[in-house]
Nucleic acid binder design. Structure first.
Lengths: 229, 229
DNA sequence: TTACAACCGGAGTAATTCGCTCCGCAAGTT
DNA sequence: AACTTGCGGAGCGAATTACTCCGGTTGTAA
């Protein structure tokens, strides 16, 4: 409704630029952390800085859009996972989809962007969907019993970026990028296999509290920060 | 030989400061990436900038020392692992030790610091030690057969930092840091369990080439970089 | 062709942050 | 007291930042 039909080749280019910008933002954010500059994002997208600022009024607006997109991707992946017949396959494909979308690139900006009402609602929904996926896998006894939803969240975040891939991209080693991406998928597959209910020894430590995630997007509680960076 | 004995309380303080600096550098580097500033490192260590520059002439010198320390830690952990009787326990403890030392914090500076002869030698040795650990585990049939040494390296790097922990540290949430550290250990334990030889389906894709690692520390080959950051 | 609209890229700008130097000060030794 | 040793951080020029503004290019219509 907002965009019924593109009205010409210029609009098509604008859409392509927007997609390239969001994609590049995830990559540069993963590689450079929260300090990622708009110039670097625009360059990685292959567009001018002007084009970036025509679509997003500020850097923060771009980051907010990015966060919302990631939540959408998370929720869609979870719904697709729940729609699968096999509880294990549903959970596993959800994890892989989230990780490969680059979910982890958002960690450095968590706590720096303002959280809108929509984002909060989507975040709440994402918690419910993940809990449902985990509960179903537990009931089917395919997921090792000592694994919690927070464990899965942390695993997704942990694999939401690949240090090796980020560095190669920064160096412009296009020739190795695909190999690194495949290698990353392999390691993720190893970790996902570790979730299966075929392990004798229990995990170390106590199950993590969900406080670890619920407070992570909190915005400047007045608490003094340790570092300036 | 270089430092036979500390000659007074001032030297003791200097040593403590040095350890704090190196420790803080790993943490800030993990949280802020390659742009980590010396001011942030000094602040996180609780020392002044002047003290940092009395010990290291430049920022790069500090980073070089950091890289060398990581290689030492890697090699010591590998030797301890090889000294263990159980091939599986040897490999697993090696992985956990390296990951928890913060091996992954070095990724953002790989390619930006000059590699000394000593570092190159230690790096070569680290390759040999890891290969020995992997070969021994393969022979004992405790490691899933399709896992290579490069897979292990990537896994260590992947878990060499924790995005959640980094963010909490940046926010000064001391109350949650220990919980996050424990949660990180749990997820790592899950991934390590995925390495065991009790999985039916093979890993996706082809085994990664060691080119992924051998060229990562290469310094400015004249290749044009994509981003300025 | 000419007139016009839509959109692009990036030079320019003020403000900030950077790596690093330098110096005044406190603590320990003689 | 005189001296040594190491400390913290203000201050410096250079580099980088987010963002603005405008000349140029592309596509459409007469």
């Amino acid at each position: 409704m907002t965009e019924p039909k593109r009205r010409g080749p210029r609009q098509a280019e604008a859409e392509r630029n927007d997609r390239a910008l969001l994609r590049a933002a995830r990559q540069v954010l993963a590689a450079d952390g929260g300090h990622a500059s708009v110039a670097a994002i625009a360059a990685a997208a292959g567009v001018g800085i002007g084009s970036l600022y025509r679509r997003y009024r500020t850097k923060e607006e771009l980051f907010q859009r990015l966060a919302e997109l990631s939540l959408d991707n998370w929720n869609q992946a979870a719904e697709r996972g729940l729609a699968e017949d096999d509880p294990w396959e549903g959970l596993a494909s959800f994890i892989v989809t989230c990780a490969e979308f680059g979910q982890g690139s958002l960690a450095p900006i968590a706590g720096t962007i303002e959280v809108t009402k929509e984002m909060q609602a989507k975040s709440d929904r994402s918690d419910e969907l993940l809990a449902a996926l985990v509960a179903r896998a537990h009931q089917a006894r395919v997921l090792r019993p000592d694994v919690t939803a927070v464990d899965i969240s942390l695993l997704i975040e942990q694999f939401g970026r690949s240090p090796a891939l980020d560095q190669l991209r920064k160096q412009g080693r296009e020739d190795l990028i695909e190999a690194a991406a495949n290698a990353h998928k392999r390691v993720l597959a190893i970790a996902v296999d570790g979730l299966r209910a075929c392990h004798s020894r229990p995990l170390p430590g106590n199950p993590p509290t969900d406080q670890l995630f619920s407070e992570r997007w909190a915005h400047e509680t007045g608490r003094d920060r340790r570092w300036t960076g």
